Amino acid sequence: MRTLGLKFILIVLISFISYSCKSDDDSTGIACPKVNNTHPLLLGDWNFSGTYIDGDLFLEECDLLTTLKVTCDLFETTSFGGNNCSNSETYSSNYRIEGNSLISLDEEGNDVGIQHIIILNETTLILQNDFSVLDNITENWERQ
Rank of each mutant, 00 (worst) to 15 (best):
S101N: 13
F16D: 12
L65G: 00
E60H: 06
E61A: 11
V12D: 06
V12H: 03
C62G: 03
D45N: 13
G55V: 06
S93Q: 05
T71W: 02
E98H: 07
S92P: 00
S20Y: 13
W46K: 02
S92H: 05
L4F: 11
T123D: 13
F58Y: 15
S49F: 02
N129F: 09
L120F: 08
E89Y: 06
D106H: 06
D54R: 08
P40D: 07
N83P: 04
I53V: 15
I119D: 07
G50Q: 05
I103A: 03
A31C: 08
Q115K: 10
F80D: 07
D130N: 13
L134N: 01
L4H: 02
T66D: 07
E107G: 15
L105H: 01
Q115W: 10
A31L: 14
E98P: 01
Q128T: 14
D73I: 05
T90S: 12
S132I: 08
T67M: 05
S15A: 09
D24E: 13
W46M: 07
T138F: 01
I114T: 15
D130Q: 11
I14V: 13
K7Y: 09
L4I: 14
Y19I: 03
T138I: 12
E76C: 08
V112G: 01
S23W: 09
T90F: 04
C32M: 12
N110S: 11
F75L: 12
E139Y: 15
I118L: 14
N37T: 15
F16R: 01
N136A: 02
L59A: 05
L10Q: 14
D56K: 10
F58Q: 08
G5I: 14
S79T: 11
L57C: 04
I126A: 07
S20A: 12
Y19F: 15
K22S: 14
N129Q: 03
V133S: 04
L68R: 02
I9T: 02
D24I: 14
L74T: 15
Q128Y: 01
S27A: 13
N84A: 13
R143N: 06
L57F: 04
S88H: 06
K22P: 01
F80S: 04
L4Y: 08
L64C: 01
T78H: 02
A31F: 07
S92V: 11
G113K: 02
G82S: 08
T90D: 02
H39G: 00
K69I: 15
P40C: 09
I97R: 04
I103D: 02
I17E: 06
H116Q: 13
L13E: 12
E107S: 10
L41R: 08
L41Y: 10
N136M: 00
S104R: 06
Q128K: 14
N121A: 05
D24F: 14
I117S: 02
T124M: 06
G113H: 04
F48V: 10
K22H: 11
I114L: 07
R2A: 09
N136P: 00
T66I: 12
N136T: 00
I126L: 06
C21G: 06
G50C: 12
S79M: 13
I119P: 00
Q144H: 08
S132D: 07
A31Y: 05
E122N: 14
L6D: 10
H39D: 03
P40Y: 09
L134Y: 05
E108V: 06
C72D: 15
F8S: 07
T28C: 11
P33R: 12
A31E: 15
E89D: 09
L57K: 12
G44I: 11
I97K: 03
